[in-house]
Design a protein around this nucleic acid. Sequence first.
DNA 1: CATGAATGAGATTTCATTCAT
DNA 2: AATGAATGAAATCTCATTCAT
Lengths: 200, 200, 200, 200
Amino acid sequence: MKISRKEAEKSFKKDFVGKVALELFSHSNFDRVSMDEIAREAEFGKGTIYKLFSGKEEILVHVICQGIENLCRDLQEQCLGSSDARQALESLLELEYDFYAEYSNLVLALVFRQSDDFDPDYLQRIRERHQQHSDLLEQIFERARNAGMQFGTDNLELIRGMEAAIKGLIINHIEKPFLDNSRAKDLQLINAMLWTGLLA
Amino acid sequence: MKISRKEAEKSFKKDFVGKVALELFSHSNFDRVSMDEIAREAEFGKGTIYKLFSGKEEILVHVICQGIENLCRDLQEQCLGSSDARQALESLLELEYDFYAEYSNLVLALVFRQSDDFDPDYLQRIRERHQQHSDLLEQIFERARNAGMQFGTDNLELIRGMEAAIKGLIINHIEKPFLDNSRAKDLQLINAMLWTGLLA
Amino acid sequence: MKISRKEAEKSFKKDFVGKVALELFSHSNFDRVSMDEIAREAEFGKGTIYKLFSGKEEILVHVICQGIENLCRDLQEQCLGSSDARQALESLLELEYDFYAEYSNLVLALVFRQSDDFDPDYLQRIRERHQQHSDLLEQIFERARNAGMQFGTDNLELIRGMEAAIKGLIINHIEKPFLDNSRAKDLQLINAMLWTGLLA
Amino acid sequence: MKISRKEAEKSFKKDFVGKVALELFSHSNFDRVSMDEIAREAEFGKGTIYKLFSGKEEILVHVICQGIENLCRDLQEQCLGSSDARQALESLLELEYDFYAEYSNLVLALVFRQSDDFDPDYLQRIRERHQQHSDLLEQIFERARNAGMQFGTDNLELIRGMEAAIKGLIINHIEKPFLDNSRAKDLQLINAMLWTGLLA
DNA sequence: CATGAATGAGATTTCATTCAT
DNA sequence: AATGAATGAAATCTCATTCAT
């Protein structure tokens, strides 16, 4: 499938605007970032943004989808590709943590929309990426089991728990900004929750 | 310090409005609940709400503060009062979980404001309650240690981890509503994270 | 059915805004009149207009419905009530003409919306008034027949033709404003079309 | 006056775009047809449209002028050329009816602009065609008189009435689309208005 | 010469907040 | 003291027009 220069340029611009939006969303709530602001920051006119995206919600969806895709690509490379199961899980954790650290506001914004009347097409796009991500995590855990590791919890629950721990820690950083050692301490906490229990 | 009837009445009304607001916030995002809605549901005129609170944000602060106070009271009664340390921690968990389940939207709304220009007086009020809550949790863990339990993590980190696990799981329920056994499964996950590790 | 003072006041305001809007629409195309303009002219804030009407379209519907209702009331009083059949038809003509003279722009605006996705509730309200008006005209013509007049055309076609002649003449006045004797000349033309034919 | 190839090509393109625009305007309100749509449908870039026309309004003016010119040409051929006066009037009617059926939306759009600040040059161009058309109709009626027909109304009024009847009926079809026999029934009604009166 | 990406004015609509009654 | 009518700033989105390529 060849992509014309025009298509490529549009795609580049979408990604550029997406990056700008991601940057803005990272520092403020999704609802507080206006299209005017995004346009100004991206150095485009407001109309141009609407040529690229059908509306503010589509920006959200686009950016999140891109984010999950990147995450999945990294998971595949660094975790599924790894021969050391323990090391793979370590990487998995870091990748997930860094993803949520960057996308926390977007993820939360999405969470709030889902209940409302959200364009079913957008929902579909998100769900697909979500499924893809979920499947990948399962594979990684399955591989770890095959490598001899023994987990008492079933995969889906395990994933749910792990993601919850990550999200929960990340949320704190929305109000209390990251310090030098925040990431290390958080990862340590999550590792404790995974391997030994916090109270061990 | 005697409280006049006037003051008492005002206080009663504030709490009443607060309860109504909490109910509304529980089912929808903070930003999506309008003052109109709160006033209508509380059977007050909108003007009256503004007599009681200086604005929408103060409602948020008031309700959260009340919530934390109630939580603290319950923690004191059920955990600090308990002689069985293990049972105390069990109760602690449930109380915290139920608190976040009810206040998730408010907590998130608060999280988003903090970065913005948030009235320093409000910030102060929140921080005080927060501190009070933190201190209480520390005491409870301290007592458990005194009762012979041994935890590898220091108290503050431990608290941070536990709260993160709870918040993380609760957030999922904003988009996927609670089912019959959701609470039980969540508590089980958190217990695993606390005592044995998810991957044990 | 008693109407509270509040209801009455709201109704009064709606009618007032409606009158202002009618005035504005009379001098310009519906699409060219902005809500800002209506609000300014009615000496209300924009928000107040939205308290009274759900949107610009509802203003259109409200004003037209009121107009048809007034027209029907007048038709009933002056035509159905009259004992002189010929005189009744004369009055009918004048009432219809004056109605379209005042409401031409609104009628046209409505015409353009119908094809698009028009709120079905609005459509219903309009249709009801339209039917009421149609029925009334039929009654009037039926009475004229009973009074001995003989028309070669069936009632519905007759009404269609008469209304067409009126609308057609009125439209000209959107671009060429009314002069002193415009109305008289138009009525004379219509009468010719009704009784003798223009080319007689 | 020789026309260069360049000029001829430009003229051809203008007419082509005009035809496309007419087609679009026939099915929708003038304001609802966007320049994007016209450009896309004409398979020109938007910039090219602006090379050909100074703006959207000029397209309107151009198309209407062309339409009136075509109408005049047909009137000249089929009515002024005819030896049968009665037949000439019959043709006149059909030509006018078909013209308004096709151009109704454009005519209405024009009607709405006139009151606003409309480029005086455009106004002039329209007026000229209008005059030309008027003169032609007068000639046709004059010929009919010369052929022995007797009309009680003076020519200008007569024309005004006839056009009004046609426009009025056409407008109804903007909301209620044409059916198989609509045209025949409309022409019958107009004939009645011309020759015998609706109520005869 | 042809293009369509970029623009930004302007439209509708929402809602926290104020204030006259 | 209580009210809710009134407000207007700010948000999203559309589209005629311009202009660099």
